[in-house]
Nucleic acid binder design. Structure first.
Length: 300
DNA sequence: AGCCCGACCTGAAAGC
DNA sequence: TGCTTTCAGGTCGGGC
């Protein structure tokens, strides 16, 4: 399940494969992969063919590369997206779950396959505009050009241009459960269900607590924990909980065995030994230690 | 405007 | 054993 660290690992691999190359052709095997593209697969294929690609940029879980026709090719992994240079020839039958394939020249790979079991991932073209704060749009390039498709996505926790003070204030304006706020990519981007639970545990805050009841210090601790966890996961190649996340070489990360709460409901808390609990919050599982993270009184 | 929630999707795992 | 149901989660869009 790719969150920020997994997306960054993929971005680094994609940058080596795509930057400076020319797209000779494109095949889309599943229409859902181009569902956000105006005109669907046909228009994506038509507009990308012959385009030259720039650096690969990432903000939160959104990735893109600027193309020579003035647009950005958006690449989102969704739940299960993988990019693999499988050295396929045009017309070769797709491998299992292969949804699209780029044919490239001028780079190290002749083809790049987009493999996506659950089809939550997407490829599409988006117009761009300069960032409002005048800082680079994301990680991987100094360009200010931010795709419209990612303009509603806030800067992420590993972005040097993130304003932690403002984010802290904004989070505490919300009456929603803090975990819901962390998962809202328009307030802070990069968190998914795994790292949100991990950061809340490290900060000792229960996810059902209303964000507006938290102190500035508590929110700062959550954000700091998020930064440290994501950096550590990045250094381990990310978290692979199942076979759904791998890097461009097909390798899985090893951070899963460092997880403190996610996927450990019913097991002992690594801090205090108390049995970890799980509740449903925002239709997602929230795993926590009732001893280390005091649940709110109104918890059902 | 902000927030909640259903829909989308597939395959593994659990239930019967 | 085999069929059915449940569960997992990132994002979008409808609706309040």
């Amino acid at each position: 399940m790719p969150e920020l660290p997994e997306a960054e690992i993929v971005r680094r691999g994609l940058a080596e494969i795509l930057a400076g190359t020319k797209i000779e052709g494109l095949e889309v095997f599943h229409p859902r992969t181009a569902r956000y593209q105006n005109g669907g697969s046909a228009q994506l294929t038509q507009q990308l063919s012959g385009a030259h690609l720039d650096a690969v940029v990432r903000r939160g879980k959104f990735m893109w590369t600027l193309t020579s026709n003035g647009q950005a090719l958006m690449m989102h992994l969704g739940m299960s997206g993988q990019f693999r240079p499988l050295a396929k020839q045009a017309g070769e039958a797709p491998v299992r779950h292969e949804r699209a394939r780029l044919y490239l020249s001028g780079g190290p790979a002749q083809s790049l396959s987009f493999i996506d079991q659950r089809t939550f991932g997407a490829l599409y073209l988006s117009p761009t505009a300069n960032t409002e704060d005048g800082a680079p749009a994301g990680c991987g390039s100094d360009s200010l050009l931010l795709p419209a498709g990612a303009s509603h996505i806030a800067r992420d926790l590993l972005d040097p241009h993130l304003d932690l003070v403002k984010v802290n204030q904004r989070i505490r304006k919300s009456k929603s459960p803090i975990k819901n706020v962390l998962l809202n990519q328009s307030i802070i981007s990069g968190f998914g269900n795994i790292y949100a639970d991990e950061a809340l545990f490290v900060a000792g805050v229960h996810g059902a607590r209303s964000a507006s009841t938290l102190t500035r210090q508590q929110v700062a601790q959550i954000l700091q924990a998020g930064i440290e966890i994501m950096e550590r996961s990045l250094s381990r190649g990310g978290t692979s909980f199942d076979q759904l996340y791998v890097d461009v070489n097909g390798s899985a990360g090893t951070f899963a065995d460092e997880l403190l709460v996610y996927g450990r409901a019913g097991q002992a808390c690594r801090e205090c030994g108390h049995e970890l609990s799980s509740i449903s919050l925002n239709k997602r599982s929230h795993v926590y230690c009732a001893n280390c993270q005091r649940p709110p009184r109104n918890l059902k």
